Simulated assay, not measured.
Amino acid sequence: MWNRVIGLIIKEILVFIRDPRTRFVLIVPPVVQMFVFGYAATFDLFRVSFCLYDENRTLSSREFISKFQGSPIFILKKEIFKDSLVREEIERKKALFVLHVDRRFDRDLSSGRSAKVQLIIDGRNSNTAAILSGYANQIIADFNADWIKKRGVGSVPSQISFRALYNPNLLSRWFIVPGLIAILTFVVSAMTIGLSIAREKEMGTFDQLLVTPLRPIEILVGKTVPGLIFAMGEATLILFAALFWFKVPFRGNVAILYLGLLFFLFAIIGIELAISSLSATQQQALFGVFFFLVPSIILSGFSTPIRNMPELIQYLTFLNPMRYFLVIIRGVFLEGRGLESLWDQFVPLFFIGLISMSFSWYLFKRRLY
């Protein structure tokens, strides 16, 4: 019995070693994902851009602001001079937060009262906003310690307040649940479309399908549409759950959300069809889908901000369809953004879809002929 078992083990090892596709799946995806997780999946903040709104403009306020400017974490992008620009800078993601120094800052410090400082944060990413609050509190504590040491003031000289736009209470589900529409739609379409052609090959029915009156383009459409329907149904189910179960506010237009979903599916379906066409078995297709799915989630900004990733990896995220769709989802849900402000997310999705669908069609035709 043990001889037979050992012989079977040796045979399976040899099969894995001799098959170049299996060798690729066993070696390359784990190495790539190790680097992706290691560098991209981080909750640390680096190079955080912020805007300054200093209504006090005194030596004391500049001394306080220098604490932020001297930190290796924060980068002052620009200084603004009116209230109306605060929301604009955050809405367009030009800055992660606006540091607002009250006009009575110096007077309150001199009189021994707590001087007010406000941090207006982009609350669309609740995890980042919470971490940022911790960093800001640490800087305030350092400033207070220096002030007391130099001037001998007995009370705490400055106090910071936080205000989060688009997610006032920093509820993580407002950030996570809309993003699940992208991830679970991706998974459903990958499990249906990504395995469809590989399943036909493995069962030996793909060649039988080719001798039917169906044309190649009809076969491709027939393989695509069911996955598209399932994915749209999954997205609708999550949308209802987000609205009625998790009580996530929806401030935008449903039509724009579904238009973005169609563009997103158009982009990823081409990639999934290409994976399925290149795979000889369902197992290979499953590994290929997994290899593409995990980095796509990590590099999308779903859990960790893209701005915190190394610069090279930030450039790679521009090839990721999920990056653009997450901006559309959260923009429609939390900000109520329209097509006029989201067109720059639709255009990359369209071109990625055009390229991926063309490539998958080329692989499909090469398989036929």
Rank of each mutant, 00 (worst) to 15 (best):
Leu52Ile: 05
Ser71Trp: 03
Thr58Ser: 15
Ile80Ala: 07
Phe68Pro: 03
Leu59Met: 10
Asp83Lys: 05
Lys78Ser: 13
Phe68His: 05
Ser61Leu: 08
Phe81Gly: 13
Glu79Ile: 08
Asn56Leu: 06
Asp83Glu: 13
Phe64Ala: 10
Asp83Cys: 06
Glu63Asn: 12
Arg62Glu: 13
Leu52Val: 07
Phe74Asn: 03
Lys82Gly: 10
Leu85Gln: 10
Gly70Thr: 10
Leu52Arg: 01
Glu79Phe: 00
Glu79Pro: 02
Ser84His: 05
Ser84Phe: 09
Lys77Arg: 09
Pro72Phe: 04
Ser84Ala: 14
Glu63Met: 10
Asp54Lys: 01
Ser71Arg: 00
Pro72Val: 08
Phe81Lys: 08
Ser61Arg: 03
Ile75Glu: 01
Glu63Phe: 11
Phe68Glu: 04
Thr58Leu: 10
Asn56Ile: 10
Asp83Gln: 09
Thr58Tyr: 06
Ser84Lys: 07
Cys51Lys: 00
Gly70Cys: 05
Ser71Met: 04
Phe74His: 07
Thr58Gly: 12
Ser71Lys: 00
Asp54Arg: 01
Lys78Val: 14
Arg57Asp: 13
Gln69Glu: 15
Ile75Arg: 00
Ser66Gly: 07
Lys82Cys: 12
Glu63Trp: 09
Gln69Ser: 13
Leu52Cys: 05
Ile73Tyr: 03
Ile73Thr: 15
Asp54Ser: 02
Leu59Asn: 09
Glu79Asn: 06
Asp54Ala: 03
Lys82Pro: 02
Phe74Val: 05
Asp83Ala: 14
Leu76Gly: 02
Ser84Gly: 10
Arg62Gln: 13
Cys51Glu: 04
Ser66Lys: 06
Ser61Gly: 09
Ile65Lys: 06
Thr58Trp: 06
Leu76Tyr: 00
Glu63Cys: 10
Tyr53Arg: 00
Arg57Cys: 12
Ile65Leu: 11
Leu76Trp: 00
Ser71Cys: 02
Pro72Gln: 01
Ile80Pro: 04
Ser61Trp: 04
Ser66Glu: 13
Ile75Thr: 09
Ser60Tyr: 08
Pro72Trp: 01
Glu79Leu: 02
Glu79Asp: 03
Ser84Ile: 13
Phe74Arg: 01
Glu55Leu: 15
Lys82Trp: 08
Phe68Val: 02
Thr58Arg: 04
Glu55Gly: 13
Asn56Tyr: 06
Pro72Asn: 02
Lys67Glu: 13
Asn56Arg: 04
Gln69Thr: 15
Phe81Arg: 09
Glu79Ala: 09
Arg57Ala: 15
Glu55Thr: 11
Leu85Phe: 11
Phe81Glu: 12
Ile65Met: 09
Asp83Tyr: 08
Lys82Asn: 14
Leu85Trp: 06
Ser71Leu: 04
Lys78Met: 10
Lys67Trp: 12
Asp83His: 06
Asp54Pro: 01
Lys67Gln: 10
